[in-house]
Simulated assay, not measured.
Amino acid sequence: MSHGILVVCTANVCRSPVMEAMLAQLLDPTRFEVASAGVMAPRGTPIDPESAAQLRARNVPVPERTARQLKRDLVTAADLVLTATRAHRADVLDLDPRALRRTFTLVEFAALCTQVEATDFAGLVAAAATERSRGPRDVDLIDPIGQPTEVHAEVAARIETAVRTIAEVLGRLEG
């Protein structure tokens, strides 16, 4: 059984494509399907060149995709939704309030998944949801669009740290 992970940011050209590409590289594609979308995506726009450069610098394949608008059906189909910021999490919940227990910021979920015990994916997501109040407070990834290369590098490094943690935990789970 494949678990759907949806990653979300504003335009789906910087943070969420980087999260998507890094997760897809580290997770078993037979067990996890990773997709991304933006709450205000300029459809048809490719990944930001600076974000693509950050992926190449880390030997992560740059996705050949364009920005996609976040829609309710994407949220309802996902087993786990990871967002760039708390505001994006709120946008997700505006589309589907029932997604609360499976929607986290990327940084928040990375911290929570190391603090809880679970043997399977559903158990991990449920346990993380129950411990949400014990998660970190600084969970927002700043938007690097239009910012200098150094800002893109800082955001990509923070994403990489969180993604590696999540991938390590997910890789240990059963089925």
Rank of each mutant, 00 (worst) to 15 (best):
H3L: 09
V7E: 01
V7N: 01
V8L: 09
C9F: 05
T10N: 05
V13A: 14
C14I: 06
C14S: 02
R15G: 05
P17N: 06
P17Y: 00
V18K: 01
V18H: 04
M19Y: 01
M19G: 02
E20S: 06
M22V: 05
Q25S: 11
Q25E: 12
L26D: 08
L26F: 03
L27G: 02
T30P: 01
F32E: 02
E33D: 13
A35P: 11
A35D: 13
A37P: 06
G38K: 01
A41K: 06
A41I: 06
G44I: 03
G44Q: 02
P46L: 08
I47R: 02
P49Y: 01
A52Y: 06
Q54M: 15
R58W: 01
Q69H: 12
K71A: 14
R72Q: 14
L74C: 00
L74I: 00
A77V: 08
L82D: 10
L82E: 05
L82A: 09
T85F: 06
R86E: 15
H88S: 05
A90G: 13
D91S: 15
D91H: 15
D96T: 10
P97A: 03
P97D: 10
P97W: 01
L100F: 15
R101F: 15
R101Q: 14
T105I: 04
V107K: 11
F109G: 03
C113L: 02
C113E: 01
Q115P: 00
T119S: 14
D120P: 07
F121Q: 00
A122T: 12
G123T: 02
A128S: 12
T130P: 03
T130I: 08
T130V: 13
E131W: 15
R132S: 12
G135D: 05
P136N: 12
V139L: 07
I142N: 04
I142K: 12
D143H: 04
P144F: 05
G146W: 03
P148I: 10
V151N: 03
V151K: 03
H152W: 10
H152D: 02
A156D: 03
A157N: 10
I166V: 15
L170Q: 02
E174M: 11
E174Y: 00
